[in-house]
Design a protein around this nucleic acid. Structure first.
Lengths: 109, 109
DNA sequence: AGTCTATATGTAGACTCTCTATATGTAGAC
DNA sequence: GTCTACATATAGAGAGTCTACATATAGACT
């Protein structure tokens, strides 16, 4: 899929996969791929800066951990992040409904 | 609606409203607004450059006309534009299905 | 020992598109 | 004479995604 079209929806995707479980960046990328049936191959150069941004604006917090000798930065939603996720879901419903109805084929006059 | 989220879907919207009828830019903006029930207020600074771009890549052609003393540039789909619209529709179906399924709420574990 | 793959994070710079703001001009109403 | 609707256009700002590269550990395999 053309992941450039994700522009503006990345926050919703990231917050969604973090809703019920804290995860580190690498695992988030795998989760996105798995949840989308392989359609979402989001590059690290997109995900890591986006996570930092979400942390900066208070929707996420992070902690470093070492697992199997490797360092991970694990992110989890804040209260503000949970609220943001609700907003993103509602925005998505409106967005997809509006776009869908505009581009739906019409009967040829 | 946050029209910045339209990024990447503008082509689909413009090609859609031009599918069955040629229109000039100003009328395209009105058509988008009407078809979306008022949700899509796309500024001229977005639409006019986008139309020029679609013409440049061969999806549209344009002609100047004077109606009621005012000049209009009327756009219509080319064969390539019709094919592009089909592609955009198919891309949208995949896109909305993928995003929708990733951000859909899951049962709390 | 050396190489390869998977795991793991990060930055720099390019790129594209949308936005805001501004400019220009006609027609018709008040 | 001014205001609103109609009509097109450009410059520059801004945001977020991409590609490409840099770094590092663990474990398997040769």
């Amino acid at each position: 899929m053309n992941t450039d079209a994700l522009r503006g929806h990345m926050d919703a995707l990231l917050l969604s996969v973090l809703e019920h479980q804290p995860l580190h960046g690498y695992a988030i990328i795998e989760a996105l791929q798995e949840r989308s049936g392989g359609a979402l191959a989001v590059p690290t150069g997109t995900v890591y800066p986006a996570l930092r941004r979400l942390e900066r604006i208070g929707h996420l917090t992070s902690e470093w951990a070492t697992v199997g000798g490797r360092k991970r930065r694990t992110y989890r939603l804040t209260a503000s992040g949970h609220r943001a996720l609700e907003g993103e879901r509602s925005d998505w419903r409106e967005f997809s409904s509006v776009i869908g109805s505009v581009i739906a084929p019409r009967a040829t006059p």
